[in-house]
Design a protein around this nucleic acid. Structure first.
Length: 394
DNA sequence: TCTGGGGTCCTAGGACCC
DNA sequence: TCTGGGGTCCTAGGACCC
């Protein structure tokens, strides 16, 4: 008999559930985490009580407030969630050495190798789920399958809070409408509908090659042995302004702030960036990015800033509209470099020094002059750092 | 009704080289 | 004057996920 080998677990309405455990008066009430009702932003997580009003994640906060005026709105407390998330994964790793973290609240566990811990794999899955629920204090849904896709779909079917074993994956997927398949988004679904294909069965019959392509990644086999931990490929920081801005000083200082955060993160991860990208979104929601390879891989705030400036300038002339968002991303991350250009050492040492001060006294203890809106005092192409003695002396 | 922030992966076209 | 084909690198943009 074929034995299911993949378990998918997903914490139910994670952020909202954490807020409920910390404030029991919220239990059973419609709760929306992501921002306040009047703010510019979207719903991160809606409690099941809020979902009954048609609120779902990704919905604009103001829309959610209209649909469910009695809802409680909370901004997220993400450091808290990530602490519980770490407990969740630590618990899973006690049962299997092969755990794949898919997001803060979602994981695949290879239970094939651990099945002798229990009389049956189903029993083992139930034990893992119960342990994770006990240790996090949260409700968890779980799905058992022969493949990741099967396990994921089983978990979907188990929500909220259940455990489901999908015995016949092929048949289940054949009757499913394709928008329920992970990886088939609105665009693809729209195109498929145009081709007269709505369910798995029709796709398999009419376009077997496309069917195979969709399942190439998710559907094939269980969890491979020796799959390397995926390394980070990029880091980004971006901000949507509360109101669209035209003020260039504000824009440049905010970009400096975002870049400052990225440089600290790179330093903490001991990675060099090979490429940098700037992103802007205008008030009409049109979005543009511009990226460029760096002259040499670096984590230096100063070097990154030199490369970022011309990118931002060429983006700003795309449209004569106020800006809604600015963001910056570093890519092509690498752990080391073949050749260390000697002229880069000084700025990198400075970034590292600044980083250690920030690590000890907090991110805001040292800020780039530009990010403090003091750009009048400094030449535009050159950055200075300002010591905020008030934060250092406490 | 207005649309976050953090990611991954893929494709297409142009530049450049042989 | 007309000019192939293949490979690689780079950038822009988009689909998708949580």
């Amino acid at each position: 008999m074929k034995i299911p080998a993949v378990l998918h677990l997903d914490i139910d309405a994670f952020f909202a559930a954490v807020e409920e455990t910390l404030d029991p008066s919220l239990r059973g009430r419609p709760l929306i985490v992501g921002g306040l009702a009047h703010e510019r932003g979207v719903v991160c997580t809606a409690s099941y009580a809020a979902r009954r009003f048609g609120v779902h994640s990704g919905m604009a906060l103001r829309t959610a407030a209209k649909k469910c005026p009695q809802a409680v709105f909370r901004r997220g407390r993400f450091h808290l969630y990530s602490r519980i998330s770490r407990q969740f994964f630590a618990c899973l790793r006690r049962f299997s050495p092969r755990v794949e973290e898919m997001s803060v609240d979602e994981a695949y566990v290879d239970v094939g190798g651990s099945r002798y811990l229990c009389a049956s794999v189903y029993e083992l899955a139930a034990r893992i789920k119960a342990a994770a629920e006990r240790e996090t204090g949260l409700k968890i849904s779980a799905g058992l399958g022969f493949t990741r896709l099967g396990a994921k779909l089983a978990c979907e079917a188990a929500k909220p809070g259940g455990l489901f074993w999908l015995h016949d994956e092929e048949e289940f997927i054949a009757q499913l409408t394709l928008d329920k398949i992970p990886g088939v988004g609105p665009q693809t679904y729209f195109v498929l509908q145009g081709l007269g294909v709505r369910r798995g069965r029709e796709l398999k019959g009419k376009y077997p090659a496309m069917w195979r392509k969709i399942f190439a990644g998710l559907g094939s086999g269980g969890m491979e042995r020796g799959r390397p931990e995926p390394a980070s490929r990029s880091f980004s920081r971006e901000t949507t302004f509360p109101e669209d801005i035209r003020d260039q000083g504000l824009l440049y200082s905010h970009l400096a702030y975002l870049l400052d955060r990225l440089a600290v993160h790179l330093l903490g991860e001991k990675l060099f960036a090979g490429r940098v990208e700037v992103k802007v979104r205008f008030s009409d929601f049109s979005t543009f990015c511009q990226r460029a390879a760096l002259p040499f891989p670096t984590y230096s705030y100063f070097h990154l800033w030199q490369s970022v400036l011309p990118l931002l300038r060429s983006l700003l002339v795309k449209k004569d509209l106020p800006l809604r968002l600015v963001g910056v991303k570093v890519e092509d991350l690498q752990a080391g470099r073949d050749i260390l250009p000697f002229f880069s050492l000084r700025d990198e040492k400075m970034t590292a020094g600044i980083g250690s001060v920030k690590a000890r006294f907090g991110f805001s203890s040292l800020r780039s002059a530009r990010s403090l809106l003091l750009e009048d005092l400094y030449p535009i192409e050159r950055e200075g750092m300002v010591l905020k003695t008030a934060s250092l002396t406490k």
